[in-house]
Design a protein around this nucleic acid. Structure first.
Lengths: 250, 250
DNA sequence: CGGAACTTTGACACATATCAAAGTGTGTGG
DNA sequence: CCACACACTTTGATATGTGTCAAAGTTCCG
């Protein structure tokens, strides 16, 4: 149901809709079609989404911008950054296809972070007013929206734990395994992928300096846990990384 | 409107209802009465809350417990802790009167952290199923619920910034000023209050060891920023603390 | 009154930051 | 297509902030 306007309008028919849904990569936002009644589907199809291209290093939205839409990442890779008062930016998340951006703007009515494409990307802008309206008619969508927000709170909590109680190696191992897992869930190789962000951006996210990140990449390499060459990485021993992550004193 | 069941039922009358609202300390949860229509008020009064006493060091809920209610703190002080896999607990927040607990359980259907009273406290349990039902009839309540969740996401983000980019002094100054501000908003003195948590718990929240917290208290004391004696603290120079917080190289 | 929990302070260790320099890609304009 | 500049990465030497370990002091509570 939450495919974008570019798809042909198939409202009311079950089969085509099902296909739309299963071919849609917006798994974070999508309420499984089987949960919707026919009439709900009709309402859902009233939503119109704008597909946007965002080129590498372009800004999707800035902190303070008026909030009007959520953004579902269709393809590409983003970083979000926030700043506390006069301090410099800190990366607060990396987002990939199928994830939803902008939830933190719902309350304040303006975005609470900057979001920037790290590679050429495509998003669907989901007008929030319309979404809200439709959600009112579809309880399962309402529930889903809440669930997404709640999941985001839990995600942020786990970053707090990472920053508050892990050492540098544990942090980097956690990030690598997290990326790996998310890529795998999207059908990509969990063991071989390209890092879209710089060492500096990883460091910012992990609360480390770029040199430290670099050194630990080298260390993991020496220990045979990964193959790494600049942006391209290959996980050789994910169990080993998992042990590092959970503080195994190797 | 979101006062608890102990208050006399005044549904339908404007004046008494207004008083209930203004005398209610649950500012986080409360939708200002003026925003509600008469019929909405009637629906809202269908909600029944259970007031609970929670004694010092008692657990309000545990991570993994089935989620069925939000909890509005009526009085007292709580800490929430979470753990990542096999690591030990980390404090993820402190909560005081007027704040709402349990939002992170909405998605997963079970609580994502432990919440423990740090002093004898009182909460209202708000059955979430009922709240959801009522919210469906009252758009402004729906909006309010979302706003609370979004605000919580922003709060967690600011903790991420604290943990990711501040040094120990900046962190402690931030915590003290934050507590001060929240107390002030509740009508208490912003400059003189009692710390309900131990050095260890502050350290856990701030990503520091208890000895470090203690040393920085001593340092702030020497510098004339605060008076501190164990749990009782007095802020002497909040501007000075604010300068420390924002990284002024004193 | 005694013991436990908490706090403070000191000495020292260590992880990570900082500073510096060289190396490696990458994109752009001539 | 080459050359140049720039952004990014790696590695080393050193500095420093915070952790660790230890011990004594204080308060609280049974």
């Amino acid at each position: 149901m939450l495919d974008d306007a570019a798809s042909p309008p198939d409202s009311g028919q079950f089969e085509p809709l099902k296909i739309k849904c299963s071919s849609c990569n917006l798994r974070e936002l999508c309420v499984p079609c089987c949960e919707l009644t026919a009439s709900e589907r009709k309402v859902a199809d009233l939503m119109v989404f704008n597909r946007l291209r965002v080129r590498r290093s372009e800004i999707l939205y800035r902190s303070g911008d008026h909030f009007s839409s959520l953004y579902a990442v269709r393809s590409g890779f983003f970083k979000s950054t926030a700043q506390l008062d006069n301090a410099q930016d800190q990366v607060t998340r990396f987002s990939m296809a199928g994830e939803v951006l902008g939830l933190d703007g719902i309350g304040p009515g303006q975005h609470a972070c900057n979001t920037i494409a790290l590679e050429d990307s495509e998003v669907c802008a989901i007008p929030f007013a319309k979404l809200q309206e439709v959600a009112h008619a579809i309880p399962s969508l309402q529930r889903h929206l809440r669930r997404m927000m709640s999941r985001e709170m839990v995600r942020e909590q786990s970053v707090m734990l990472l920053l508050g109680s892990m050492n540098a190696e544990e942090r980097l191992a956690t990030l690598l395994l997290n990326l790996s897992k998310r890529l795998a869930a999207r059908g990509y190789s969990p063991s071989e992928f390209s890092l879209r962000m710089t060492r500096q951006e990883m460091g910012s996210y992990l609360g480390l300096k770029l040199e430290t990140v670099s050194r630990i990449f080298s260390k993991f390499h020496e220990e045979g846990l990964i193959d790494v060459q600049r942006k391209s990485i290959r996980i050789l021993d994910s169990d080993g990384l998992a042990r590092v992550m959970s503080g195994a004193l190797s």
